[in-house]
Nucleic acid binder design. Structure first.
Lengths: 346, 346
DNA sequence: TTTATTTACGTAAACGTTTACATTTTAAAT
DNA sequence: ATTTAAAATGTAAACGTTTACGTAAATAAA
């Protein structure tokens, strides 16, 4: 590698390509975009030179001028959650095919951070936003601001119902209902729901499914029994669950969110409770490790990857041909109840 | 909300702010950046108006002009891996403080995708790149191209040794050595290493640690015994491990990467092998679920979050004050061996 | 008072694209 | 050969910032 290499490589733009080829910048730009206005021969020349000189378009200049970024924002509470990870992979898989990029943003499940993340996105960095809202989001002004700037929004999994926007969700009510029935069928008399604080609709839907299953099965007094944890893995959660196990003595637990499985298992361990003999547990999660836990965990497995795919397809469809009425699109994908040892008959 | 709101909100830029305030665009720009060239009174007026009108700077225009993006790229094989997730969170935590954003890119552990991701980043989208290389990356031209464009690069965890660049890693040799010794101490006579294909230096370092521990402890013939899996969770891996368990009959396994734990546990289950009675297992992982597996898994826990923090601090330090010689920075952080039931004496 | 310095602002040229519009070249129609 | 249409290219103005440079007003130094 000589000094020439070094200096040549520093910033090669269309102007240089144009000079190299004795063409105007306009023609170079069009050739690179396969415009019908430029001859095949010129296209070939331009592309050859671009490849040879390692030219890569400056997306900032490009989108500044064209108002198109070919980028989708994905806003999630956390990426340390197998569900969101799989959704992201689903989104990325279709985005990639359609020549879109993704910008992953985390809110750390905080309403305030969500506002600032969304506000940042109003500046034209992205063409659209796919979001799973924070559990304590209590107002949708930031979403409306985004919509008013003409940036379409689509909710996946956790939506915010006051906002009129497209959504892709799972059948939370039904799957919680079915899981509760399964626990009842396998002999549970006293099932508690362990869920998280915050007003996210999917959690209330899961709660409703749990309640309805109890009603339909003539549950004993003292039920429903619901406790609310923090929406992150924590020692407080373990203590809270342990106290509940001691006081209420449930023989079944339905956990509404992935990270609660570790806390619930730990609490049972601390008390010497045997799963499933003393207490049966089912959890909403997509973690692959569920099958090798002690004991293997019965899960309500959501179609996370597919959810991401559907969400991205919908949004990109809208961005490409504006003819679909995005706001009216509401998809519901079915979850699967995967039976494992943690709820088996003893 | 009336029609006025709707239309007012659509695109508010510095020009409009300037007109609203009877100032020049330059003064508005400077006021928003707290330049010493503008009076406190004017700054206050500008900021008030900006807040009132929901102005947010167009980062594309800004970085196009200033050649500063205040964005770091994080390039990882996968985000569905607790280690990378935690590193990302570490990076983000310090980036946030220093007013940097992060752009997360996945290579899906493919050399080809890595090239295209890195090439995309040469166009000025980011100020620097933090990367953990794909396991089959066999050439560093794409990294050199990036460096030649003046974009600094820093490797975390998985580096590419032919490239002269900063790195933040863990003590792979020592921790593999210690884990192997621990297995030997607890009675293992025949320990196999389960690792992944590809020429990433951290895997060879872990392999060397394993080898050296065997040598130092006068291991039996037939050792070292090493098998190479695909670098993703797969049924092939399970089959491969099962075959190995049948043929070689090891009484100890050292797993070099997180996702192998599920495969190894599953393979043992299939063969009816009891952990730790029949076989003891230790694994490099940062997963929280390790403690509730069946049985709880002994882990070499890497300081993932801290690694992210250190990496980001180093890179941002360099970007802010160019006086440190980035390429000469090589940090090694110690891992911790967490003893659990999967390797306990029986 | 005059001159020098400091403070606060304005002007205008970039940054690297895209694209409406104009122009030239080539081919087709008369 | 002339006119008309189509194809290929060029010109120049945007997109929304930042910043070098210039200038006027206010203050300090002479």
């Amino acid at each position: 590698m000589n000094m020439n290499d070094e200096s040549n490589d520093r910033k090669i733009n269309m102007k240089m390509l144009a000079k190299e080829l004795n063409l105007s910048i306009a023609t170079v730009s069009r050739a690179l975009k396969d415009s019908y206005e430029v001859s095949d021969q010129t296209k070939a020349r331009v592309k050859e030179a671009a490849a040879r000189l390692n030219y890569v378009v400056n997306t900032q200049a490009s989108s500044l001028r064209s108002h198109k970024t070919y980028t989708l924002a994905i806003v999630v509470p956390e990426i340390g959650d197998s569900f969101f990870t799989q959704v992201i992979n689903g989104i990325e898989s279709v985005a990639d095919k359609k020549k879109y990029r993704v910008l992953i943003c985390m809110t750390h499940d905080s309403y305030e951070r969500e506002i600032s993340v969304i506000n940042e996105l109003t500046n034209g960095r992205v063409d659209g936003v796919l979001i799973s809202v924070a559990s304590n989001t209590r107002n949708g002004d930031h979403f409306n601001a985004l919509k008013r700037k003409g940036i379409p929004i689509l909710f996946f999994d956790r939506d915010f119902k006051e906002i009129n926007a497209a959504s892709v969700k799972t059948d939370d009510f039904e799957s919680a209902y079915n899981a509760t029935c399964h626990l009842l069928d396998n002999g549970c008399k006293k099932i508690s729901l362990i869920t998280v604080r915050g007003g996210v609709s999917i959690f209330s839907a899961r709660e409703e499914g749990y309640r309805q299953a109890l009603i339909d099965n003539h549950s004993k007094p003292g039920l429903p029994d619901i406790i609310h944890c923090a929406n992150e893995h924590s020692d407080d959660n373990i203590a809270m669950i342990r106290d509940h196990l001691l006081k209420a003595r449930p023989d079944g637990l339905l956990l509404t969110v992935e990270h609660l499985s570790t806390d619930a298992y730990t609490a049972c361990q601390l008390l010497g409770l045997k799963i499933p003999a003393d207490i049966k547990i089912a959890c909403f999660t997509t973690q692959l490790t569920a099958g090798i836990l002690n004991p293997a965990l019965t899960t309500i497995q959501q179609p996370a990857f597919e959810m991401g795919q559907k969400a991205a397809e919908l949004l990109i469809e809208y961005l490409t041909y504006k003819y679909i009425q995005l706001e009216n699109q509401h998809l519901v994908l079915p979850s699967r109840l995967i039976l494992r040892d943690s709820t088996s008959l003893t």
